[in-house]
């Protein structure tokens, strides 16, 4: 469903972080992208989730080339992706209580009426108790916040999940719980997964297929 063809991307004009990388994720497939820190795999994840415009290369979503990124991308394309980042602390608007954090994508897409139902469904999936939902990010632990960030990524029922080092900062138990939540969601919906990380043991256990960063370009 997602195909990246010779993507080159970066933040300054002459120093691309990602050079000529190609990667395919089939519908329903889970792909682990394994690479050392600082290699540019997070940038590739942002390109794949339509959050960063590549300098060159083609991205095909369901066979159609993507021409627009970030706000210019049509909303239903953007929301086909659910993203979870490494640092939950930076991925959460510090002012919003966890409920609002999770509900934000629903409100942003004009589906505010569904908020109570979706929260009630998702909170047990990611293991958040009602008492935690009313708190703000600084009142919960990193693990609890990452659970909320995963719930936010799932709230619009994406067809592809992009998890960028989702568990790198977490203890073993929380990591296993979040991976289990992702896999339950995928089993129920058939969504695809692109999991980016540096932990070979984890990705090989988690994903159908693991690719190495060096082998991509």
């Amino acid at each position: 469903m997602l195909e990246l063809r010779s993507i080159t991307a970066g933040y300054t004009r002459n120093a691309p972080v990602v050079r000529d990388v190609s990667l395919t994720v089939a519908p329903g497939e889970s792909v682990g992208l394994l690479g050392p820190s600082g290699c540019g795999k997070s940038t590739l994840a942002r390109v794949a989730a339509l959050l960063h415009r590549p300098d060159s290369g083609t991205l095909l979503l369901d066979g159609e080339p993507v021409r627009h990124w970030r706000h210019r991308a049509p909303r239903d394309r953007r929301t086909a992706f659910g993203v979870v980042f490494q640092q939950a602390r930076l991925s959460a608007d510090p002012r919003l209580p966890l409920t609002d954090l999770i509900a934000e994508p629903l409100r942003a897409t004009g589906r505010g009426r569904e908020v109570p139902d979706r929260i009630a469904q998702l909170a047990p999936v990611v293991g958040l108790t009602p008492d935690l939902l009313t708190r703000r990010p600084h009142e919960v632990s990193d693990g609890q916040l990452q659970r909320a960030c995963l719930a936010r990524a799932l709230v619009l029922r994406p067809r592809l999940l992009v998890c960028d080092e989702m568990t790198a900062m977490l203890d073993a138990s929380t990591a296993a719980a979040l991976v289990a939540a992702v896999e339950d969601y995928r089993a129920a919906t058939g969504a695809a997964l692109l999991a980016v990380g540096h932990d070979r043991t984890l990705l090989e256990r988690w994903c159908d297929r693991t690719v190495h960063w060096e082998s991509l370009s």
Binding site: G127, D171, A172, S173, A176, A177, A180, L202, E204, W206
Partner: peptide, 18 residues
Amino acid sequence: RGLLQALPDRAFTPVPGM
């Protein structure tokens, strides 16, 4: 024991609850 069993090279099952 639960913490160790949560490792991806062991059972990879979380300790239930929080």
